[in-house]
Computed example of a mutant assay.
Amino acid sequence: MNNNRFRLYHTDGCHLCELAQALIEQALLEGAQVSYQLIDICDQQTLADKYGTSIPVFSDGQRDLNWPFDLEQLQQFIGSSV
């Protein structure tokens, strides 16, 4: 796995977040060499303020990929971040 640490900002019970996570898992199955962690925005008020109306958001720490995104957009985002 690449050293890049991606994050998926989400919250429990978010159907769109589940769709985004499924796309990330699909990208990994198709050979994307990255690791990511799930970050629940409800755990930190600053994250809730920042992402509360835009989750799911996939981030590389510098840039955010906001929903909606598809597999191709996700793969391009990952590829441009490594």
Rank of each mutant, 00 (worst) to 15 (best):
L38G: 03
A48P: 05
F69W: 04
Q21W: 04
T11Q: 15
I55A: 02
I55L: 02
Y9H: 05
R7I: 14
L16Y: 07
T53P: 01
S54D: 09
D70K: 05
M1L: 09
F6M: 04
D60G: 08
Q73G: 07
I78R: 01
M1N: 13
D49F: 05
F58Y: 06
L71I: 03
A48R: 10
G79I: 02
G52S: 03
L71S: 00
D40Q: 06
W67E: 02
Y36W: 09
Q45N: 11
Q37L: 14
R63F: 06
D43F: 09
H15E: 09
R7Q: 12
L16H: 09
D12T: 14
I55F: 00
N66F: 11
D49K: 08
F6N: 00
Q37H: 13
Q76K: 07
F6I: 04
A48W: 07
T11S: 11
D12N: 14
F6G: 02
A32I: 03
M1V: 12
V57W: 00
Q75M: 10
Q44L: 11
N4I: 14
Q21C: 10
H15R: 12
Q76Y: 05
V82S: 11
D60F: 06
H10L: 13
D40C: 08
C14S: 04
N3R: 10
V82W: 08
F69S: 01
W67C: 01
Q45H: 13
D49T: 09
C42K: 15
R5L: 15
K50E: 10
F58W: 03
A20T: 01
C42W: 12
Q75V: 03
I55C: 00
N4D: 09
I41D: 01
H15F: 09
D43G: 11
L19N: 14
G31Y: 07
H10Q: 14
E72R: 10
Q33T: 12
Q75R: 08
H15C: 08
Q44W: 12
G31S: 10
Q62D: 11
L29G: 11
A32L: 05
L8M: 07
F77Y: 02
L47S: 07
